[in-house]
């Protein structure tokens, strides 16, 4: 069997936020001692209730948020906020769509491609391929502000793939998607997996995670409750049941 490459590894990764009110300072631990490993060619479902620490973890993996403890290893090298070199191989879709609405789809993709320093010829070819892949080729000169929320989410997704990344981080990617776009989205993720890319998908829409993921991790209140192959989560019939049981046990 082919040995799989660890693309991301976290050791005791922690994040503590400090809230300063007028009288006192309060520390909140958003992520506590997270140990994760993400391999190439897999879809890793990262699930947890709202406020569990999913977005914070993703932000730490992309260097937007600084970890207060632990270590991150990205593509075999230590990584911390401020390192820009590993970002050349990462695609990131944030939780909320925040694309500038004065761009056309081609314009925004061109802008992000320039940030990666992609040569013109490759850029043109890649933008065409991405537009075909998500089915927005006919709308390529439409302004972002005239797109539906689902289509904007697809553009979010395209900008994350413009650099042909090895690792794709998706934060709640399925929130605005209707069933038709959802189906296309599943196909795209499966194609990316076949290409050997690692996909970390954070979500609380569990049926989607169940359909797509190879391995799953459940996080609650910043603590990793369980991590493993999908079959380990199916003992009670579905990931959702396992998730609810684990969260309830953790509460008590």
């Amino acid at each position: 069997m082919k040995e799989r490459l660890v693309l991301v590894k976290t050791r005791q990764l922690s994040k503590q936020y400090a809230f300063q009110s007028f009288f006192k300072r309060k520390n909140v631990e958003a992520v506590k001692g997270l140990d994760l490993e993400i391999y190439d060619g897999e879809i890793f479902g990262f699930v947890g209730p709202n406020g569990a620490g999913k977005t914070t973890t993703l932000n730490m993996l992309v260097g937007i948020t600084e970890a207060t403890g632990g270590e991150i290893e990205m593509f075999g090298r230590p990584f911390k906020a401020g390192d820009i070199e590993p970002l050349r191989y990462i695609g990131y879709v944030p939780e909320t769509t925040s694309l500038p609405d004065y761009f056309t789809i081609v314009g925004i993709l061109d802008f992000y491609a320039q940030l990666f320093g992609i040569p013109k010829k490759i850029k043109r070819e890649r933008i065409g391929r991405l537009l075909d892949m998500v089915g927005l080729f006919d709308e390529r000169y439409t302004l972002i502000k005239n797109l539906s929320m689902g289509q904007r989410r697809l553009v979010d997704f395209m900008q994350a793939l413009i650099n042909d990344p090895r690792l794709v981080l998706l934060d709640e990617p399925t929130v605005y998607l209707d069933p038709v776009i959802m189906e296309r989205f599943r196909l795209i993720l499966n194609t990316l997996r076949k290409q050997g890319k690692a996909i970390l998908m954070s979500s609380h829409i569990l049926p989607e995670v169940e359909k797509l993921s190879d391995r799953v991790a459940i996080i609650h209140r910043g603590v990793l409750l369980k991590v493993g192959p999908k079959k380990d989560f199916m003992q009670h019939g579905s990931i959702e049941k396992e998730f609810l049981k684990l969260v309830k046990d953790n509460h008590s």
């Binding site: 909320t96 769509t97 925040s98 500038p100 940030l115």
Partner: peptide
């Protein structure tokens, strides 16, 4: 205010660009 909004800045910071 538009450009340095949290979400837009996050997207820029996820690219290989120095601050």
């Amino acid at each position: 205010q538009n450009f340095l909004a949290k979400e837009k800045l996050a997207l820029l910071l996820s690219k290989p660009v120095w601050r």
